[in-house]
Design a protein around this nucleic acid. Sequence first.
DNA 1: GTAGGGTTAG
Length: 678
Amino acid sequence: MPPIVSTPSLLLHSHFLLFSTKPNPNSQPKAPFIPSPSTTHPELKQLLYHKFKLGFDKLDDALLLFSTKPNPDSQPKAPFIPSPSTTYPELKQLLYRKSKVGFNKLDDALLVFDQMLGLKSRLSVVDFTQLLTALVRMEEYSVAISMFRELRVLSIPVNIVTFNTAIHSCCHLNPLDYAFSLLAGIIKSGWVPDVFTYTTLIKGLLSQDRPLEAGDLFNKLITYQEIQPSVVTYNTIFDGLCKTSNTSMALKFLRKMEKLGCRPDIITYNSIIDSLCKERRVDHALDLVSEMTHKGILPDVITYNRLLQGLCSSSRWEDIGPLLSEMGVRKISPDLHTYNILVDAHCKEGRTIDAEDVIAIMIQKGVPPDVITYSALMDGFCLRGNTDRALEVLNTMMSNGIAPNCYSYTILIDGLCKNRKLDEARNIFDKLASRGLQPNVKTYTTMIQGFCQEGLFEEAKILLSEMETSGCLPNDVTYNTIIRASLLNKRYEEAVVLIENMRARVPPDVVTYNTLMDGFCLRGNTDRALEVLNTMRSNGIVPNCYSYTILIDGLCKNRKLDEARNIFDKFASRGLQPDVITHNTMIRGLCQEGLLEEAKLLLSEMETSDCLPNDVTYNTIIRASLLNKRYEEAVVLIENMRARKFSEDASTTSMVLDLLSKEEQDPSVLAFCKWFLQ
DNA sequence: GTAGGGTTAG
């Protein structure tokens, strides 16, 4: 039997230190003298201490102690639970540990707080801050804030770190008022807000969809030189920009950051690379990889995973092999995320056999599949209509000791519903609670969709109300599903009630307004679309790049180029950067009005900016030059495009073929088409 | 003792 600890002397030593400070007489061990298989680890430790002080009765007892394995069942998860007898050094050690991982239960944290109040004269700011940090780790933000308030009420000293931790908690709760009043509190208490304070506040503003204010705060910091932003501050902003698909602005901001003397790091580049990949600009992302490599910032496994994801979602399968070999050359091993991306990509393409191969490889390489791997595979089988295999995967995963989560079951429920196995789906849904899982919005919505699809409108409505009473708020997708079903069932009055409910509970967001504007534009009613823009603004929703692009498109299609151009020119003054789609929309509008020169001007502006043209940009202008019989210019444009590794699309190619069949008498057309098709 | 990055579902 192996010893409990490999270095008993070390254990004895540390234990001696721990207890020698000031042992609590009440916590003296009443431990059994003879260890048994049921002896718990703390008991064993206590015994060891006791015997170390007093000596063993028999040498055999000492030897037995080193060969006793603690009983796993009687071993508490937390090495010890605080009790009134916990000593001061024990408390300090507990706080340090829990500030890293959080407490197992909220009650434990509250118990410790009570104990700390009793010992407050002997505890430092750091101890109380560690307790707050532990609560943050447990995502118990409102408890952390109440506790912070209590510290203030009881005049227990706090410092800037305590304030920053409290602000961090506030930023997870709506609204941010209390976070900013704490900022004022810092100054009032004579502390100086630091880079942690401001970075946390910026993150808070961004996570609550207030990018303009985040930008304002950052600019103020720079202008008034309040603090020197760190690379973390910049990365927080990059994350915000990239998650809202303001990639062009992120690229500009990267240059600004360097100009302001802050060196980007791997996280900076990974954020932008991810954002470019999500926009399917993988080549541009690869350019950034070479840029960072030149600067001595080497890509890591996360960089490669994002590139891989980008290649998969652009269906660039042929580029995946070379990328994986490049990883090998750089000695970067694929990790769980890498394999999961590959499994998911294969599954989405219907290649479940390849996905299973990937799983075999990962097991062989010592990276065991997790809940995400198996869920993706289940989705793959469901997509192919093979729900039996999906259920088999569920069993495999459970027998491998991996507990399915809400994602896994939602995938299965969806698969079963789509394959007309409603009863099986409902069966699984009903069993969720007994498996300790609370269905979330997507789970409920999936089941509601299943009912609606089978015409079980009443069942769907019952589930909707169950959902509401369980505290899981339906969202726009949920409501729209059931509203469509009520319309299909000609239950117009119920539809009205549902729509009113939806409007009351799901406040319209930027996406809702954009959809509405798009609808009006499609019907040619750009005036109504502009009205929606104003309503949106007066409701405090900030229009995004997409909102204006919809308008530009609508105005162009309705021959209101001047108004469109006006909106395009105002982007910068609104703190927005038009993206490649906005540019393409504007260029299409210009071309449609025959303003080829102006379109080309915009293209050349793009070529020297951070918002590089893509295949759509080139193809749009190329088609316009062909329509204007400017064949030589078209040749130059096509060569430019090909040099950037883009190629002519189906629509351009068919235009050339069309031209050839209609105008083959024209020598310049013939020459162009010959050149194009060779 | 405090701030920043990646994979699965409607």
